[in-house]
Simulated assay, not measured.
Amino acid sequence: MEINNDQSQLDINLIHRFLSEESTWAKGIPLEKVKQSIAHSLCFGGYENGQQIAFARVVSDFATFAYLMDVFVLKEHRGRGLSRQLMAAIKAHPELQGLRRFLLASSDARGLYQKFGFQALGKPEVMMEINVPDIYQHRSN
C-alpha cells in the first residue's frame, strides 16, 4: 500500500461514505463536515493500484499535541497488515515527533494502537470531555 499526505488524492466521497454509513463514531456525518475536517487535518491516504483503501487524520498543533481520528481500512482489504502499515506511517511522520500528548479514542482496535505506544490514560481523573455521540443524527449540525 502506498501512503501519502496529498489531500488532492483523497477520495472524499469514499471517506464520507465510510464515515457516514460504516463507522460507529460518525454515523450520518454530512459531506460538508467531512470536507471541513479534512481541510483542517493532517490526512493519510492509503492506496493500492491508484484506488484509496485506507484513511486516517490527525489534528495537531505540531508542537505539543495531536489527536488521531477517523482511522479505517476498507473491509475488503482488512487482515493484511495494512492498518499496521498506516499506523507506522503516522507515527513516523516528521511533524508528529516530540509531542507531549498524542491521543485517540478506540473501542475495537486497542491492541493495534498499543503496538504503537498508545495506552490507557495515565490520569483519567484529569481528563474531561464534551461528547455528543449522536450529533450527526440532528440535521441542524
Rank of each mutant, 00 (worst) to 15 (best):
K27N: 09
H40Q: 15
T24Q: 15
F18C: 00
N131W: 11
G45Q: 09
M69E: 08
G28V: 05
I53V: 14
S23A: 04
E125D: 15
I15D: 12
F102K: 08
E95N: 15
K91A: 14
G117H: 08
S23H: 06
G111F: 02
A105W: 09
A88L: 04
L112A: 03
G117D: 07
L86H: 05
G111L: 12
E22F: 04
E21R: 11
E48P: 04
I15V: 15
D61L: 11
A89G: 03
G122N: 00
K123L: 12
F55N: 10
L42G: 00
V73W: 07
I130Q: 12
V73A: 07
G50K: 14
V34A: 01
Q114T: 07
W25P: 01
E125R: 03
R84Q: 06
F102S: 01
Q97R: 14
G98M: 02
Q97N: 13
K115F: 10
A39N: 13
A66F: 04
G28M: 10
L121T: 08
F44Y: 13
F62G: 01
L86N: 05
V73M: 04
S37R: 12
A120K: 11
S20C: 01
E125F: 03
K75P: 06
N49S: 14
H93A: 07
L42A: 11
L74P: 01
A54P: 09
S60G: 06
L82V: 01
T24P: 00
L74K: 07
S20M: 03
S107W: 08
A120Y: 09
P30I: 00
E125M: 01
F55M: 14
I130K: 08
Y113G: 06
R101W: 06
D70H: 11
K75R: 11
R78E: 08
L19V: 07
A88R: 10
S83C: 15
A109H: 12
A109L: 10
Q114P: 10
A92K: 15
V58N: 09
P30C: 05
Q36C: 03
E22Y: 02
L68S: 10
I53W: 08
G111R: 12
I90R: 06
L99T: 02
Q119F: 08
L68W: 04
D61W: 10
L121S: 09
L14A: 15
K123F: 01
Q114M: 09
D108C: 09
H40I: 03
F44R: 04
S20L: 00
V126R: 11
A26S: 13
Q51S: 13
K75I: 01
L96Y: 13
A89L: 06
I90W: 15
L86I: 06
V126F: 08
G81M: 06
V71F: 00
S107P: 05
E32V: 07
A89Y: 04
G28D: 12
F72K: 04
E129N: 02
I53Y: 12
R78C: 03
A88Y: 01
Y67C: 14
A89K: 15
S23V: 00
F118L: 06
E32L: 05
R17H: 15
G98V: 01
A54H: 12
L68A: 06
L99F: 02
G111C: 01
L31W: 09
R100S: 11
K35P: 01
K75D: 14
P30E: 04
A39E: 14
G111S: 13
L86R: 07
K123E: 13
A92L: 10
